[in-house]
């Protein structure tokens, strides 16, 4: 009897040590990645917060004095002579432009991406793989180079203008480049795969026999599309919108390469604060506001879809 109890004890203690060992292994294996991301990815974000409340240094960097100037500057302009503040819309315009361009890019991507994803999902499996591959390649190729390729097409001496001139539709180049149109086109072009892929993955397992049920119940093609296909593809469409909207809002390369001074976006504004303008606190403040907008849209998305981190699989 006593032997048995002793045995039980050793048994349970060995179970415990095994559990402890397992925990130790877990910690050891998780530590490198978590520490790297926490130090290089997360901690700097709080430093940004601190910096946004400091004064700019004369040659970049900061002076360690508390100041809310960076946030005030966003709305008000200080007079050079008497320092009095007057309301300015210069920066708000950039924000507004960024948001409207990002929304336009998102809409454009939905309009092109949804039919494309649907079309791919209705193809026989072999063809489906080829199409998917063709969509995936731009997804992973260099954004800068793709944007540059877009530049080649939109330039005054680009394929479109020269082509139109050769046909004789126009006799002078239409300025396509360095316009908001060029930027939104570039954004759509850049992020289209981000829309097609999640919509496709929500359509991939779609039971097309449901369409039979729809037609059987007197729905025509349009109604089948609106009442059955789109509602079922909705999670994919929502994920795609988030995946296009967020990078579009913070885009730097597209407006830098395709947009002119009149189509500056938040990303360019931030960059200039760390470059020519040498106003780090202001740059930090704008970055934080951008981050806040992104977090809010992510939260709205998660609230409405109940998706937890599902985006990362898109």
């Amino acid at each position: 009897m006593t032997d048995l109890t002793v045995n039980n004890q050793t048994l349970s203690s060995s179970v415990q040590t095994q559990e402890q060992r397992q925990q130790k292994v877990r910690r050891l294996l998780l530590a490198p990645s978590l520490i790297t991301i926490l130090i290089i990815g997360v901690l700097p974000l709080s430093v940004v917060l601190v910096y946004s409340f400091l004064e700019p240094g004369a040659f970049g960097g900061v002076k360690w004095n508390f100041s809310t100037n960076a946030y005030v500057q966003l709305f008000f302009e200080a007079d050079i002579f008497d320092g009095s503040l007057s309301f300015t819309t210069a920066y708000l315009e950039i924000f507004w432009r960024s948001i409207s361009l990002a929304v336009m890019a998102t809409l454009g991507c939905v309009l092109v991406g949804f039919p494309t994803a649907y079309f791919i999902a209705t193809q026989p499996p072999e063809r489906r793989n080829i199409f998917l591959f063709l969509i995936t390649i731009p997804f992973w190729t260099n954004l800068l180079i793709r944007t540059y390729a877009m530049l080649l097409i939109l330039r005054d001496e680009g394929v479109i203008n020269i082509g139109l001139q050769n046909i004789g539709i126009i006799d002078q180049a239409i300025p396509l480049l360095y316009t908001e149109f060029a930027v939104s086109l570039g954004l759509i072009y850049s992020f289209l795969p981000f829309m097609v892929l999640p919509i496709y993955s929500s359509m991939e397992k779609f039971d097309f026999r449901l369409l039979e049920a729809g037609f059987d119940l007197y729905a025509n093609r349009l109604k089948v599309l609106w009442r059955i296909i789109i509602p079922i593809a909705k999670p994919g469409i929502a994920a795609g919108c988030i995946l296009v909207f967020i990078p579009s809002l913070g885009a730097y390369i597209t407006p830098e390469v395709l947009g002119g001074g009149k189509s500056m976006m938040i990303g360019n504004l931030i960059y200039s604060q760390f470059g020519a303008a040498r106003n780090w606190p202001f740059g930090a403040a704008i970055a934080l506001i951008l981050m806040a907008v992104v977090l809010i849209s992510l939260m709205v998305y998660m609230r409405r879809t109940g998706d937890k981190g599902g985006l990362s699989h898109g």
Binding site: L45, V48, G250, A287, L288, L290
Partner: peptide, 10 residues
């Protein structure tokens, strides 16, 4: 999850 430009600034 974080926009590239924000990560870059940070």
């Amino acid at each position: 999850m974080v926009p590239e430009i924000v990560t870059a600034v940070a």
